[in-house]
Amino acid sequence: MVPAQSHVPAGRPLWSLLEDAFVDEGAEHLTVHGRWGAIEIADTSPLVREALHRMSLGPVALENISALHENFVRWKTGSGPCLVWRKLKNTLDQLGGCLVPSLGLDDGAGPILSVVAVTRDAVFGLPHISADQPVTMRRGTEIERLNGDQALACAGQQYQVILHNAPATEIAKWLLDTETTVASVAEALHLEKALVSDVVAYLAGAGLVVTARR
């Protein structure tokens, strides 16, 4: 379920399709085929077509689409209405487990983590977690090796999280060891709170980090 109050990343949100998914488009139809079958997309507008085309090539920053850029910036900065972006995001949510949200940094070096669904009906959202809210990794979550990367996984959850690069790996390992807060992790690892907050929000959206009672 998408959280009522959402976290807006300070870093660079990226999106892609699962590696085995592909887009079939015609003049009047738009279909995404994946490991769980075909998904018919009702909105066949040029913006949706362009977004899906780019996402089929790998993790991309959708704000680079000229028709979306201004709206996306307003969403990121909270500076005004962003109906075009929200409409596109609602369409992307229809992709369920075929959608792969990732988090990148502003250096453009690619994602530091990616959230990959293991069930068809998974819908990803970023919950807001304050810097002093106690958090912990869900019981049973472990780091595994997956295709040369490290991955966080927990039996029964809809997502696993691929840890591509630092500092996502270091933050995840720290969260495995203890109940803590965003502020405490940032101080211990000498990282900006905004970056730690982003990583924690993605892990929480994947169901692997949970808030602890005070």
Rank of each mutant, 00 (worst) to 15 (best):
85 W>P: 01
143 I>L: 14
112 I>W: 03
187 E>R: 10
132 D>Q: 09
165 N>H: 12
28 E>T: 14
43 D>P: 00
54 R>M: 10
47 L>D: 11
17 L>P: 04
178 T>F: 05
18 L>H: 02
193 K>R: 15
143 I>A: 08
26 G>D: 06
112 I>Y: 03
21 A>Y: 02
97 G>P: 07
168 A>L: 12
57 L>I: 02
149 D>E: 12
133 Q>C: 14
90 N>G: 15
187 E>W: 07
173 K>Y: 06
60 V>Y: 04
144 E>G: 03
43 D>K: 00
12 R>S: 07
54 R>I: 02
162 I>D: 01
28 E>D: 12
19 E>M: 09
161 V>H: 00
122 A>D: 11
77 T>I: 04
138 R>G: 02
47 L>T: 11
163 L>I: 03
43 D>T: 03
95 L>V: 07
47 L>R: 03
54 R>Q: 14
139 R>W: 04
134 P>S: 10
170 E>V: 09
3 P>Y: 06
75 W>D: 01
27 A>E: 15
95 L>A: 05
105 L>M: 11
11 G>K: 03
192 E>M: 11
77 T>R: 09
27 A>K: 13
58 G>Q: 05
54 R>H: 12
107 D>F: 13
40 E>M: 08
8 V>N: 07
87 K>N: 15
87 K>A: 15
120 R>I: 06
177 D>W: 14
3 P>K: 00
191 L>R: 05
168 A>K: 06
171 I>E: 06
188 A>P: 04
148 G>Q: 09
210 V>D: 01
105 L>K: 08
76 K>A: 13
120 R>S: 12
164 H>I: 04
9 P>M: 05
150 Q>S: 12
51 A>I: 00
70 E>M: 01
82 C>F: 11
31 T>G: 01
8 V>E: 07
99 L>E: 04
110 G>Q: 10
73 V>I: 14
110 G>C: 07
21 A>R: 00
180 T>W: 09
204 A>C: 13
64 N>E: 12
69 H>G: 12
76 K>E: 08
181 T>A: 02
205 G>H: 08
190 H>N: 07
13 P>F: 08
170 E>P: 02
169 T>G: 00
214 R>F: 11
154 C>K: 11
8 V>Y: 10
2 V>M: 13
145 R>A: 14
40 E>S: 09
84 V>E: 08
14 L>I: 07
129 I>V: 10
207 G>N: 13
75 W>R: 02
10 A>V: 04
137 M>G: 03
29 H>G: 04
201 A>F: 10
146 L>T: 03
73 V>Y: 00
13 P>R: 02
55 M>D: 00
199 V>K: 09
56 S>W: 01
47 L>N: 07
4 A>W: 10
135 V>Y: 08
84 V>N: 02
8 V>S: 11
84 V>A: 10
13 P>G: 07
116 V>G: 01
108 G>Y: 05
201 A>V: 08
204 A>H: 11
37 G>Q: 11
176 L>C: 14
11 G>L: 05
209 V>Y: 11
124 F>Q: 06
177 D>R: 15
165 N>G: 01
167 P>Y: 05
77 T>A: 10
27 A>H: 08
214 R>H: 15
56 S>T: 00
14 L>T: 08
194 A>Q: 15
175 L>P: 03
115 V>T: 07
54 R>K: 09
47 L>G: 11
91 T>Q: 14
182 V>S: 04
63 E>P: 00
70 E>G: 04
25 E>W: 09
13 P>C: 06
112 I>D: 03
167 P>V: 08
